[in-house]
Write a protein that binds this DNA or RNA. Structure first.
Lengths: 108, 108
DNA sequence: TTTGTTGTTCGCAAAATTACGAATATATAT
DNA sequence: ATATATATTCGTAATTTTGCGAACAACAAA
């Protein structure tokens, strides 16, 4: 095999995709993208999993840069990280558009 | 927590995203989306990993429905599954558009 | 100070992912 | 029949992910 490494862009898309690779996290993102008030409790209520697990998923989304949190004692408010959301949107759009599939594909 | 389960659509987006959640698989998809002839060997040459591992990644992409394979002894030809590619593209576009983030976000 | 509310972190277990080399399968060429 | 070329599968190891309950932290209220 070649020693060709992955590009920064490939790593970034994969990172976003990985963060989105669980239905709970998709549900969280959709919830946040649609609502205005997004407290932990509200998110938890939407999901069929324990709060410890919700917290974990939120951490992963935050680490990937897709969301951000803000303490409002005693609650915690989460929301979409708009800058990275735009970046992710652009990367995925580019990714799916960059496809020669309309032409004669190699497979039947 | 509520007992609300995930929707089929959420599961499907998560499934596609999970399959895309590794740089090697992103690289494979980009390679396939751009090329016309896509033999296993060509893919392997593009990646910094052992052929057994490439084979595994290809299987995951196939299981997720994003690619398909065809034996052409002694080679194997892979390519984008165009139908599911279109589906994924639409689901991700919808996912990223379905965002109220332009308005006053809940976080500062 | 004690109680209550809200979330995070800890500790743990089960399962899945990633990766590799070796062995195997398949079909052609010698 | 043997050798060659190509790719998958097997067996294994290390790491990561997912999930939970219990314990903890931070702060307001009684």
């Amino acid at each position: 095999m070649a020693n060709k490494e992955y590009s920064i862009e490939q790593e970034q898309v994969a990172r976003f995709a990985k963060a989105m690779g669980h239905p709970a996290r998709i549900a969280i993102l959709q919830f946040l993208a649609r609502q205005r008030t997004c407290y932990f409790g509200d998110i938890h209520m939407e999901l069929p999993i324990a709060k410890a697990t919700v917290s974990q998923h939120l951490k992963e989304l935050k680490d990937a840069g897709l969301i951000q949190g803000e303490v409002e004692t005693p609650k915690v408010k989460y929301c979409i990280n708009r800058e990275n959301w735009r970046l992710a949107k652009a990367l995925f759009a580019e990714f799916f558009n960059d496809c020669a599939c309309k032409k004669e594909s190699c497979c039947k």
